[in-house]
């Protein structure tokens, strides 16, 4: 129970609730999804016009609206890509690490091939062929990132597999399934959670890099990454275009990672005795 009142948990929860809540309510708060343009009000600075409290972008669109609505795309990109990659990577990593032999070699060569292709170059080539789109970006990220989890899990499994308590469990005749999910996976969870929460943040930013390279989703649909990339030409004259989505990303990253840290401690069977 004490764990619920830890700094990480409270701070993380508050930040995520604020950002996530606003984003979740955006369809009711801003029914036109931040798409209305007003060329007469373009590049309005923040805090001077009540209609545009956080200012406007070069299209005269309201920054507050676009930040709140844009969170949706950023959350989808960040969370779905991380979830997909964690699931795929964990399963493959567990199989390869625990059974070793042929499947290990086979899956790890797959992983090597994937690792040896730099993501950005892969993305540029693939998007040039099939065209841009939200679904494609998420799938590309999963394809590019499952390897990280697979190798991390495999490394933990390799190490834990030889650990005394796993050897002991084996000698008692526990089935593989129980050993994997009862003993090995919980012990591999710590770094996994940290990596996953890191990657949610990374992928929100990666979407920004893709827009920077001209491979983003269409610019009418707001996203934090897109706002940062498109706003870069205005950093000097209209910094508010990039500052507010930047802050939104920062709060999300902080909140997610604080919660991730807390969860890691909460799940870590040995860590609990120590706090």
């Amino acid at each position: 129970m004490r764990a619920l009142f830890r700094f990480e948990f409270l701070a993380g929860l508050v930040l995520l609730t604020l950002v996530g809540g606003a984003v979740a309510l955006s369809p009711w708060l801003f029914p036109d999804s931040g798409k209305t343009m007003d060329f007469l009000a373009r590049l309005t600075p923040p805090f001077v016009n009540e209609a545009h409290w956080l200012g406007t972008d070069p299209m005269g669109r309201d920054i507050l609206e676009r930040v709140v609505v844009g969170g949706k795309i950023s959350f989808i990109v960040g969370i779905f890509s991380a979830l997909g990659a964690v699931t795929l990577g964990t399963v493959i990593g567990l199989l390869a690490g625990y059974y070793r032999g042929f499947w290990d070699s086979f899956l790890m060569r797959f992983a090597d091939i994937q690792l040896a292709l730099p993501f950005i170059l892969l993305a540029i080539t693939v998007i040039a062929i099939i065209g841009p789109g939200l679904d494609r970006i998420v799938i590309l990220m999963i394809v590019a990132q499952w390897v990280q989890y697979a190798r991390l899990v495999r490394a933990s499994v390799l190490s834990l597999r030889e650990a005394e308590y796993v050897q002991a469990a084996k000698s008692y005749g526990l089935p593989d399934r129980k050993i994997i999910f009862g003993h090995i996976l919980p012990n591999a969870m710590g770094p996994l959670i940290i990596l996953a929460t890191l990657n949610v943040a990374n992928n929100i930013l990666l979407e920004s890099s893709l827009t920077f390279l001209g491979l983003g989703i269409d610019p009418l649909t707001p996203s934090w990454g897109g706002m940062l990339a498109d706003g870069r030409n205005y950093i000097q004259t209209a910094p508010w275009i990039t500052i507010f989505p930047g802050l939104a990303i920062m709060f999300t990253v902080l909140g997610l990672n604080l919660l991730g840290d807390w969860l890691r401690d909460y799940l870590d069977p040995l860590g609990k005795t120590n706090t």
Binding site: F7, S208, G246, V253, T275
Partner: peptide, 28 residues
């Protein structure tokens, strides 16, 4: 020094460092 003030500061700083896209940080 888990959960000390030093730890929290390092944590917040590192998380802040993770919140910038690289091109934006570069331009700044």
């Amino acid at each position: 020094h888990k959960n000390s003030w030093g730890d929290q500061c390092i944590r917040i700083l590192s998380l802040t460092g993770l919140s910038f896209p690289n091109f934006w940080l570069g331009i700044m």
